[in-house]
């Protein structure tokens, strides 16, 4: 691809200030071929992140006690159309948890595919950073296919967990298709509102780095257990905590 047929923009230096797609040049008034292809490749990576099935193998290998479960959404197409089904445990999975009912872990950690299975590759490293920071607390780990944030409410209620922390793939953007989001809910139970959660987002190398994400999440989690709440009321305090 030569630049002979295209005009480059003489303000390339702007790219130092943002990773927006600036100074792309033009062929006539249209995008040069190389930019059309770069964009399409980024979109392909994002689509693949949405549609590739989750692989919990590495997590199961590292934490053999973890339980692999699924939501009521049968497959990706239904997951996308029916967010309500992704928020509830499949009856088979609920049955798996039944014997553990009222085991009452201090912390329930759910790892879910969310909208980006590609983000799961950061989950083992994030847990390796996070778990030592939860020293002294009992932890139960669940791995859930076709999972939405509120699924941790039902799972946490079944287990009688003190607080639930769900890590799942965020909606992929073109520039970041593999970000994890972490959502924390005190005393999880079905029907909790989003305003009762706290969130740490954009967790990935190059975004919010994993060690920092683990530190923030652990501080939020300990603050939540200490104060007996989560959500908007915890936000003010957590901002100070995180300074």
């Amino acid at each position: 691809m030569t630049d002979d047929l295209t005009e480059t923009a003489p303000w390339q230096g702007l790219r130092a200030f943002t990773h927006a797609r600036l100074a792309l040049g033009r062929a006539g008034v249209s995008l040069p071929t190389r930019e059309v292809l770069k964009f399409a490749q980024a979109h392909a990576a994002a689509q693949d992140a949405v549609w590739t099935p989750a692989d919990f193998g590495p997590l199961l290998e590292a934490w053999p006690d973890a339980l692999e479960l699924r939501s009521r959404a049968e497959g990706r197409a239904e997951y996308l159309r029916r967010p309500d089904l992704g928020r509830r445990l499949h009856p088979d999975s609920a049955a798996v948890l039944e014997p553990l009912a009222a085991s009452a872990p201090d912390v329930l950690i759910v790892v879910g595919d969310g909208l980006s299975a590609a983000a799961l590759r950061h989950a083992p490293a994030l847990l390796c950073e996070l778990l030592p920071l939860l020293d002294g607390l009992s932890v139960r780990l669940l791995l859930v296919h076709q999972c939405r944030v509120a699924l941790a409410d039902e799972a946490g209620e079944l287990l009688g967990a003190g607080v639930s922390l769900i890590l799942l793939g965020e909606r992929p953007g073109l520039s970041s298709f593999d970000s994890l989001g972490a959502y924390l809910t005190f005393a999880p139970r079905v029907g909790r509102l989003d305003s009762e959660r706290n969130c740490v987002s954009n967790i990935r190398p190059g975004g919010l780095e994993l060690p920092e994400a683990a530190r923030r999440t652990a501080s939020l989690l300990r603050a939540s257990l200490r104060r007996g709440l989560s959500g908007v009321e915890l936000k003010g305090e957590s901002a100070e905590l995180l300074e």
Partner: peptide, 22 residues
């Protein structure tokens, strides 16, 4: 810029797209 909103994480129309219409 380039139809890629890096804050809201979605794709919209670009400056080039407007010139295509013109």
């Amino acid at each position: 810029p380039g139809a890629d909103d890096i804050m809201l994480n979605y794709q919209s129309t670009s400056f080039h797209d407007a010139w295509y219409v013109r």
